[in-house]
Design a protein around this nucleic acid. Structure first.
Lengths: 240, 240
DNA sequence: ACAAAACTTGACGCCGCGTCATAATCTAAG
DNA sequence: CTTAGATTATGACGCGGCGTCAAGTTTTGT
């Protein structure tokens, strides 16, 4: 049976190779530059072989998106358990998001390609479920923090909002900031000097806006962010 | 000289027709469905004629984006002058954004196609300047409100942030929310029942987080939003 | 009326995706 | 080891999309 496993591994390895090459092409020259023909040439096989692994181009991209979301989800999980204090856990998730964009931009960038596009529709149900799964897990991590905060009275849930809708607010602010920061050319020239610091401030403002205890000034918040950042860096490094 | 103007008008009219058809194609079937060949057929001319008006496909899309941004910018301008109170002006701009996404989704959707993509790079400098112009104008409207608020002490500018960075926060939250709401399938199933109301609450939370006077509860805020919304609807309708 | 300028046309070259008949390779039973 | 049957690899092909350009047509100015 050594034969079977050897062949199996060879195929698995090739699948990984395909994704690796595809990622490089996407990152280097954008979505249009991802060509199945060129990919096959770089892989050293015929084009038809590619189609034994993935039914179409979109599935390759979505496989990369899945990898990306898995990385993000793991980081969120780690961040959510970095402290006992609910507000710090929330801040840590924000930092994880920041970290993800900055230090794993190869994944973040690929998430962007698919964010508003026809790509999703062309994928198999299996893949869609997987993506949904990771989305739910990320959401779950953050909603957990919100619920815990409510349970220990760090946060009073406004009558107009659900816990998920609270999360939606923070999701919007980080997602929005990071997308704008990442692929909007020249935010600096618009007067936004340090977008990253600004995002932290906005997160702090919003936490304060919900009266999420302990309410603190931006200056105090910055110190806490710095401490959490250091702790998170260690955790993330030890993970890799 | 009636001849000159007749021909000129004919050409201008055709340009408008091209954009109209292109918009319909984009909205109906997505970016991939915008085909120069089909566009030419629908227009009733040869393909080469298209290329007398636009040097490439991307320029057509970007022309549509310019139209969209112009609409948005006008709405922002109106919203920024709907009240004397700085906080209400800020809220009105949020409402304008909401209105833009909901009632002018044909424009908003097209902005999305270009938000993270290779399209921008293929356009002529002239077009890029135009886009930049509208971006600056929108930014300018909001920054104006922030500066006014500071001037009348409705808002104290945090030492860590510039006025533009404050705007960036609100930009992120509305941009992020609206993108997520618009093209994420099934936010409802994630527990987000009324994303629109949630966005208003988050805006309110953030304003409160900056201690933007008059600080108010979500419930109070909702009433003000409703009043402003009505006033804005009248203004927007009278504009059209 | 007529020449020069401006505009229109559509066939053409090139490239990319996905297919499929054929060829090569592997598996497992005899 | 042999060999039939299953699995996998190949690349030429069909189709369709973008942008070009030489040839033809209309408009303009005199």
């Amino acid at each position: 049976m050594t034969r079977i496993s050897r062949k199996q591994l060879e195929i698995q390895q090739r699948e990984a190779d395909i994704l690796q090459i595809a990622r490089r092409m996407l990152l280097e020259d954008g979505y249009e530059a991802l060509s199945m023909d060129k990919l096959a040439v770089e892989l050293g096989t015929a084009k038809g072989t590619l189609y034994n692994h993935f039914p179409n181009k979109e599935e390759i991209v979505l496989a990369l998106v899945c990898q990306a979301m898995q990385v993000r989800q793991q980081m969120f999980g780690i961040a959510a358990s970095v402290s006992q204090k609910s507000r710090e856990r929330m801040m840590a998730i924000g930092l994880a998001s920041e970290h993800y964009v900055q230090k794993h931009s190869e994944h973040f960038a690929i998430e962007q390609f698919v964010s508003n596009s026809t790509i999703r529709g062309k994928s198999k149900p299996r893949r869609q479920e997987l993506i949904r799964h990771f989305e739910l897990q990320c959401m779950g991590s953050v909603v957990g923090v919100v619920r815990d905060a409510i349970a220990v009275s760090d946060l009073k849930l406004p009558s107009m909002l659900t816990a998920e809708e609270i999360v939606f607010g923070f999701w919007s602010i980080t997602f929005g900031s990071h997308v704008l920061t990442y692929d909007r050319p020249g935010l600096n020239e618009l007067g936004i000097n340090d977008a990253w610091r600004a995002v932290r401030c906005h997160g702090c403002a919003m936490l304060n806006g919900f009266s999420w205890n302990p309410v603190m000034t931006f200056e105090q918040s910055e110190v806490v962010f710095a401490e959490l950042d250091e702790r998170l860096n260690m955790l993330f490094d030890s993970q890799a």
